[in-house]
């Protein structure tokens, strides 16, 4: 609709009547609101991100490269990637299973499961880390047995993976459940009545119907998995080159007044955030289309 047609209406024998959509504020107000939002974003988001990159490259490219390829930093990057590579697929499977169960059939305790999925959102990450120490630490019930078997969970990679999975498990499920509930069971019933097996229904109908939402959830899950600090900090033990993830490594460097190196590693995390943001926007644009198509049905 053209702007002109929207704002003016011509009546026979009358001059053009200015008409402003009733929910649209006066120009002054509009400009003020936009400026306030922009100023806020600039101050709290854009400036810090820019500052991270400026600080990271203050010493020039060689110093930046040295900070990143230095063995402890490289180990932290590798560990972060490893943790994400384990926890994201776990949450992908869990999220799909849980949302499939919640959206597509009825069972006792369904609403309880639905509520429990949100638990990591409401629990402080530090508590999440402590839970694993209480479960698997040397003072715990399982501690002596784990020790005799030679399995180290706490202050080792398994603990970090567990804490990360806990903190990130709602992301995929939370994206899928509303979409799957909205789509209902009709497509699955149609596929079954046409003779498809359970596997065929899942891979040919259910999964394609949610693929963009799934990708979106995985992306958010991954960003959080790589950036998680609190829960991981509790279970990691901060052993350099062994149990330090990128966020922990940044903190250590910073506490040692090694600002250039701290910002260099931090800039990688910021880059991840920017990348996530871009892909997320692209997906939202794609995914909004799919949602709209769903609504049109």
């Amino acid at each position: 609709m053209s702007d002109e047609a929207f704002t003016t209406a011509r009546l026979p024998g009358a001059s053009a009547i200015r008409f402003r959509p009733v929910t649209m504020e006066r120009k002054r107000v509009r400009v003020a609101l936009i400026l306030v939002s922009l100023a806020f974003l600039g101050l709290f988001l854009v400036m810090p991100v820019v500052a991270v990159f400026v600080e990271a490259f203050r010493g020039g490219m060689p110093a930046f490269a040295e900070a990143i390829f230095e063995p402890d930093a490289a180990a932290a990057i590798r560990l972060t990637l490893l943790v994400a590579a384990i926890s994201v697929p776990c949450n992908l499977v869990f999220g799909l299973a849980a949302s499939w169960a919640i959206a597509k059939f009825d069972f006792k305790g369904k609403s309880l499961l639905n509520t429990l999925i949100d638990l990591p959102f409401s629990v402080s990450p530090v508590i999440a880390g402590l839970i694993y120490i209480l479960m698997f630490g040397s003072q715990s019930l399982l501690g002596p047995w784990l020790k005799s078997e030679g399995i180290q969970v706490i202050f080792a990679v398994p603990g970090i993976v567990l804490a990360t999975i806990f903190v990130t498990f709602p992301f995929v499920a939370r994206e899928l459940i509303p979409l799957m509930e909205e789509q209902g069971r009709g497509d699955e019933e149609a596929a079954l009545s046409l003779g498809a097996s359970g596997f065929q229904v899942f891979f040919r109908v259910t999964l394609p119907n949610v693929k963009w939402a799934l990708l979106y959830g995985v992306l958010l899950c991954n960003a959080r998995a790589m950036g998680e600090f609190g829960a991981v900090s509790v279970v990691s033990g901060h052993i350099r080159g062994l149990t330090n993830t990128m966020p922990l490594h940044v903190e250590i460097l910073y506490n040692e007044y090694n600002f250039a190196a701290a910002f260099a590693v931090a800039s990688l995390l910021a880059l991840l955030a920017l990348f996530t943001l871009v892909v997320k926007s692209v997906l939202e644009w794609r995914y909004a289309d799919e949602i709209a198509a769903t609504r049109r049905h």
Partner: peptide
């Protein structure tokens, strides 16, 4: 089986 809301695979 034909559904009221078609249930076509989108």
């Amino acid at each position: 089986f034909v559904f009221q809301h078609y249930a076509l695979f989108r």
